[in-house]
């Protein structure tokens, strides 16, 4: 656990841009599309997810030598579910309005594959500081992505930013962008922009349905570094 701070920074930046969980790994798409119709909702979702990500990464990395290999996924999910319950209660305490707007999607952070993926591929194999740095990076990456989505959809879709009207009364909002269909369009557009700026190599290892295949393929031989 003797980490050089600059290495930590590198891990953070990797999660934020180079291996952005949304744009590169295509993880966590459901909350990204579902609650990004306003900037406030998007930010709340991003922060709640980051909170759960960082807390569970810290706990899992502390317990990594004590969790039996066979039941590790179940253990991770339980730890994550506990922190999600905390996050939900916290959000309810801070802003009941936002909590209502997000609905069941706060609870659904449990099945956000960014968190389970980070636990499986990083936190369960690395020390506390490195895990937290990595989790912070991925959390920031997700928050950044969902903030872009929320900004794009709210500014164009309802002509405002965080509830403040931006354009004059003559502006006709593109309502389609705050409707479900617009979520898909906005995400497609952002992916195109990201691809244009830094082209993503088409590796097959993308999307969270692939995560579940990891345990069999990678760890079948019992090669887990603890």
């Amino acid at each position: 656990m003797n980490d050089q701070p600059d290495f930590d920074m590198n891990l953070f930046l990797k999660g934020l841009w180079r291996e952005n969980p949304v744009f590169v790994q295509l993880l966590g798409m459901c909350p990204l599309l579902a609650v990004s119709n306003t900037v406030i909702n998007a930010l709340a979702m991003g922060l709640a997810t980051s909170f759960v990500l960082v807390m569970s990464a810290a706990l899992i990395s502390l317990l990594r030598n004590r969790i039996p290999k066979e039941v590790r996924i179940a253990t991770f999910i339980l730890i994550i579910a506990s922190f999600v319950t905390c996050a939900e209660l916290l959000l309810q305490a801070i802003s009941l309005e936002t909590h209502r707007a997000l609905g069941p999607f706060v609870s659904l952070i449990v099945v956000n594959c960014i968190i389970l993926g980070q636990a499986e591929s990083f936190a369960s194999k690395n020390g506390l500081l490195r895990s937290v740095a990595d989790a912070l990076g991925r959390g920031a990456g997700f928050t950044f992505a969902i903030f872009c989505m929320g900004g794009l959809r709210e500014v164009i879709g309802s002509g405002s930013f965080m509830g403040q009207a931006l354009f004059g009364a003559q502006y006709q909002p593109w309502v389609i962008l705050i409707l479900p269909g617009g979520g898909f369009f906005a995400l497609g557009l952002l992916l195109l922009i990201y691809n244009r700026i830094s082209p993503v190599s088409r590796s097959p290892q993308r999307g969270c349905h692939l995560l579940q295949e990891l345990p069999d393929k990678k760890f079948g031989a019992g090669k887990v570094k603890t």
Partner: peptide
Amino acid sequence: NLVEGTALTLMLAGILSM
């Protein structure tokens, strides 16, 4: 080339959703 893959799938999904 640029659109191929997920971006295109998402656009399709948007039309379908509409």
